[in-house]
Amino acid sequence: MVILSLLILNKAGGLIFQRDFNEGLKKLSSNDYLVLAGTFHGVHAITSRISPVRNSGGGLEVLESDRFRMQCFQTLTGTKFLIFAEPNQPNIDVVVKRVYELYADYVMKNPFYQIEMPIRCEAFERNLVAYIKPK
């Protein structure tokens, strides 16, 4: 399972978590990541309005190119999970669900974590890395 990176956006579109899992990726500055997150949030909002599928309720879900596949999972609470993976990676849904469970456990249950703020939970990162790169 080759996941390249993970981004988590809060309800307002701000970036609260970003992590690369593959050393070969070109590093963006943290400002670039913030801009990327904000842009995606806007695009997601627009696509949910202009969706040709009636009652789909959601916005952009999958973005594929020949180099990567990006999947977006929006929870009912407005939090977006963006997974970047290799183009032929199957079962990203399973990965996203598991990441959501880890988020619900290690981030939300941490009483010192302020909601909508950047995630600085060591337990979350540890378990995330253990799940995504089990080596």
Partner: peptide
């Protein structure tokens, strides 16, 4: 409640 909802949604996979 603010935090419980994420746990609930993650475990039960409920839709809208």
């Amino acid at each position: 409640g603010l935090r419980l909802i994420e746990d609930f949604l993650a475990k039960t996979n409920m839709g809208k």
